[in-house]
């Protein structure tokens, strides 16, 4: 599936992105920066150190993860759905010798690539800000890509079954939104009741943060293999499931 034709699908999306690259990257930076400034300074001034770091440093890694998740999710949901349903771009591509699997592979990698761009843009700001070092930031890059693949794979499942744009609200309200508040973006998971901490360990965002926060802050990683495994599983199973569902939707 990962071949020239999947790459052609990836390239198509890249070419569209390139036309709007500047506003797109600015948009990717501005919103997370507002979170970071507003919450980091506003809330941070009320808080002592969090987990041994100034609050704004603690929050920064969370914002990198949240932003990567959002970027991959929006691309795999709204943008991919436009190409599948509204613009019939997938249909056109399938008239060429490209299979549905190859289209999905191209879309999966593209959504992950776009979230990688988002995550790296914020990372760059954090380096300039002095919150993390260039060397630490470099170590974060593969973890961002992995996070992107995870949420892009999950997003494609929703896209493959969605009848319209409104359907995505269920995913945001029931999955993405709650996950944001129990995965340790804004405060350590250890602040939650024990049962919620256990639940939190089942969520991919928790593992993305467990991987990325120590890397950003220059701390040592614990159970890195577990976090990587969970992200790979969510992304991989999501992608495989989206193949099955998209096949049912388009090829039967």
């Amino acid at each position: 599936m990962f071949n020239q034709r999947a790459l052609a699908v990836w390239l198509r999306n890249f070419w569209v992105w390139r036309k709007l690259a500047v506003p797109s990257v600015l948009g990717n930076i501005v919103e997370p920066m507002l979170y970071l400034l507003g919450l980091g300074y506003g809330l941070g001034s009320l808080l002592p150190n969090v987990a041994g770091f100034p609050y704004i440093h603690f929050l920064a890694a969370g914002i990198v993860c949240q932003s990567t998740m959002n970027s991959a999710t929006f691309e795999a949901l709204y943008s991919a759905f436009s190409r599948l349903h509204v613009q019939r771009t997938w249909e056109a591509i399938m008239h060429a010798p490209v299979s549905l699997d190859e289209i999905l592979m191209g879309e999966w990698l593209w959504a992950a690539s776009k979230s990688l761009l988002s995550g790296c843009a914020i990372l760059l700001v954090l380096v300039v800000w002095g919150i993390t070092s260039p060397l630490h930031a470099l170590a974060v890059v593969p973890a961002i890509l992995l996070t992107g693949l995870c949420f892009a794979g999950m997003g494609l499942v929703i896209t493959s079954v969605s009848p319209n744009y409104d359907f995505f609200m269920y995913y945001f309200t029931l999955v993405i939104g709650p996950m944001l508040f129990v995965s340790g973006v804004f405060y350590p998971v250890t602040q939650l009741p024990v049962w919620l901490q256990w639940f939190s360990q089942l969520l991919p965002l928790t593992h993305a943060i467990s991987l990325i926060r120590p890397l950003v802050l220059g701390e040592s990683l614990t159970l890195a293999w577990l976090h990587i495994l969970v992200l790979l599983l969510y992304g991989g199973i999501g992608f495989q499931l989206s193949r099955k569902l998209a096949r049912k939707r388009l090829l039967s």
């Binding site: 056109a92 008239h95 010798p97």
Partner: peptide, 30 residues
């Protein structure tokens, strides 16, 4: 479909690209 052309019933030209780009992008899929 390598040696086949398709004109579908419903328009599925790529609205994100110009006329020439539509042809170039489509060639890439082949």
């Amino acid at each position: 479909r390598l040696r086949v052309g398709v004109v579908p019933q419903f328009d599925n030209l790529d609205p994100d690209f110009s006329v020439a780009e539509n042809l170039i992008i489509f060639g890439r899929y082949f």
